[in-house]
Design a protein around this nucleic acid. Structure first.
Lengths: 144, 144
DNA sequence: TATTGTTATACTCTATAACTATA
DNA sequence: TATAGTTATAGAGTATAACAATA
């Protein structure tokens, strides 16, 4: 392999910029990054409890509570006590939540597509394929 | 473009894992992430003042001072008053600093190569080429 | 006693402001 | 007065610990 910059040194500023762009879009849609992450997780696959949600998005369970409060207040998620285990709160995205998430995602990916247009079609496809593959590698396997 | 996950959502956990791996390697070498960033910047191109260094690595000037203190104490950089402007401190990496940086970088990239081996040779080359190209896009152009 | 969700506290990291010494 | 470097302070974000309710 020919000489190259560190992977993290290349990707970290890129990710930082992408997140900044995403925050700007989300602000227009009136939702925070944590809200978007939560809505996306609940939209992509059903998650029953708050602990499972926190685990799924790699957050601390204490960190998502205020986010869930706001999402519930805005009618973007529902949060009901589980009749079978009244300690737990059953989480679900609402139709409004789904709409909000998908509208935001469309704008976010439109901007990402604009950035990706800097690449050739072949490199763009390979880059997305590689990003997908690398993101599927477990944390522990990368840290070693 | 076919349906895909958000770019930031794919790359951010990857970068986080790469940084965790890097931190582990750096710990073995006895240097902090900020020290490594500073050494890399000074090794790659001469930088005269602390303000210019902070600017180059995207850090606050107040944030690098303790790092510079430690690097100087360890003999990895030199920091001398500029005779022509005694307010400024001329920075330079020492031979020991260069050795430390390059030894650390070799281990870091060896681990990155291990991760990149999950890709086909063609995708790996395209991914690195794309990462290089995308990381060269100015922050403002991505944020829009 | 163990677990879910919650609140309160402490800690880390970063940014802002104030200071000194030179110019 | 303006700038390079430094120190001190404050703020945001996160993690840790303690708590109430239920199992």
């Amino acid at each position: 392999m020919t000489e190259r910059r560190d992977l993290a040194a290349m990707l970290q500023p890129l990710v930082k910029s992408l997140i900044a762009a995403e925050l700007r879009v989300l602000e227009e849609h009136g939702i925070s990054m944590w809200s978007y992450v939560v809505l996306s997780a609940l939209d992509d696959s059903p998650i029953r409890t708050q602990a499972a949600l926190a685990e799924a998005i790699g957050a601390d369970k204490t960190r998502i509570i205020s986010t869930l409060d706001r999402l519930q207040e805005a009618g973007l998620i529902s949060r009901q006590p589980d009749p079978e285990d009244r300690r737990a709160r059953l989480l679900a995205i609402t139709q409004d939540g789904r709409s909000a998430r998908r509208a935001a995602q469309a704008d976010i990916q439109a901007n990402e597509d604009r950035v990706l247009a800097a690449l050739s079609a072949a490199d763009r496809q390979a880059f997305l394929r590689a990003a997908q593959a690398l993101s599927a590698i477990p944390h522990e396997e990368i840290v070693g």
